[in-house]
């Protein structure tokens, strides 16, 4: 049992609510596993060394860098990617707020930022602008200059607190 497995390891996890059972090379990163083996191409690879945050997913409800996690480490985990945020064809209030406030340009960092903010607002439903900035400071956005992201998060927080209705297009 303690013989190292070089040819492959079985992993089972839930990805956006679906049970996934695969045989993977132990060196396969969770990000590659999600993108290639589960079709979750909303997981983006910006640096593959844990700095940019584009590959952020929720692992058992907490954010994780999927590039700094091996697929085998997610054994038994419940994974949510950006594909799992919307409710059917209904955008999540955060997605709606990012759309309204122009909180994205090229959109490459956006999946990671959305999931990071989802955790931030769960921990702190009414963050100050400084707390929002600190909360997303592990996610590099090369396009927006962050201003409209901060605006979107502030607005979405109010919606999620139930203080205002979501403004769908």
């Amino acid at each position: 049992m303690s013989t190292p497995t070089r040819t492959g390891t079985s992993v089972s996890m839930t990805v956006n609510g679906e049970q996934v059972d695969r045989h993977v090379d132990p060196r396969r990163t969770l990000s590659d596993f999600l993108r290639r083996d589960c079709g979750a191409t909303g997981v983006h690879l910006g640096c593959e060394h844990g700095v940019c945050g584009a590959c952020t997913v929720l692992l058992d409800g907490r954010t994780a860098r999927s590039c700094c996690t091996l697929a085998v480490q997610a054994q038994g985990a419940d994974i949510t990617t950006v594909e799992g945020m919307a409710d059917g064809a209904e955008l999540h209030p955060l997605q709606e707020a990012f759309w309204k406030h122009h909180g994205l340009q090229c959109g490459f960092c956006t999946p990671g930022i959305l999931l990071t903010v989802q955790e931030l607002l769960a921990d702190n439903p009414d963050p100050s602008d400084e707390e929002i900035r600190e909360g997303i400071s592990g996610n590099i956005c090369r396009c927006t200059g962050y201003q409209f992201i901060v605006d979107a998060v502030r607005d979405a927080a109010a919606v999620l607190r139930g203080e205002k209705a979501t403004e769908a297009e």
């Binding site: 303690s2 190292p4 497995t5 090379d25 132990p26 990163t29 593959e48 091996l70």
Partner: peptide, 25 residues
Amino acid sequence: MKPAPFGHVRASTLDQAVETLVAED
């Protein structure tokens, strides 16, 4: 930026983990 091949042991006990380290020298 993909890791080189390696084996993987998901230790189920601490002893097993230590044994593997010893075996891999």
